[in-house]
């Protein structure tokens, strides 16, 4: 693995994670702040606002990469059913 990584660098096809982040932010629908519109928070970590559904977009878009099996969820049978309180009437 390590050799492969260095091989790739010399290959000229290195993957730039900064570019990746930039493109992903655009895809997520980042509202970039106008210059001087707002003070940057936390020393420049925030350069705009992501919409509520930003990660939903990524998840939906990348779903085709995953062959994840759907899971079965249920309520009935997940706990011990105690017998109902005894009835008064006698047969």
């Amino acid at each position: 693995g390590k050799e492969k990584a260095s091989q790739m660098l010399s290959d000229g096809t290195a993957f730039d994670h900064i570019v990746f982040a930039e493109n992903l932010l655009s895809f997520m629908g980042l509202n970039r702040l106008e210059e001087g519109e707002e003070e940057q928070q936390n020393g420049g970590a925030v350069d705009g606002y992501l919409p509520q559904d930003a990660w939903q977009r990524v998840a939906q878009w990348s779903q085709c990469c995953f062959k994840t099996a759907p899971t079965f969820h249920y309520m009935m049978g997940s706990f011990h059913t105690e017998p109902p309180p005894p009835k008064q009437k006698v047969e």
């Binding site: 492969k4 790739m8 990746f20 990524v58 998840a59």
Partner: peptide
Amino acid sequence: SSGPANLKSGLLFVVLGLIFMKGGF
């Protein structure tokens, strides 16, 4: 129609994608 995608898989895509593109580690 299969419902909203699992949000965590979006994060997983980013992490696995980065690892793969960077050569495995």
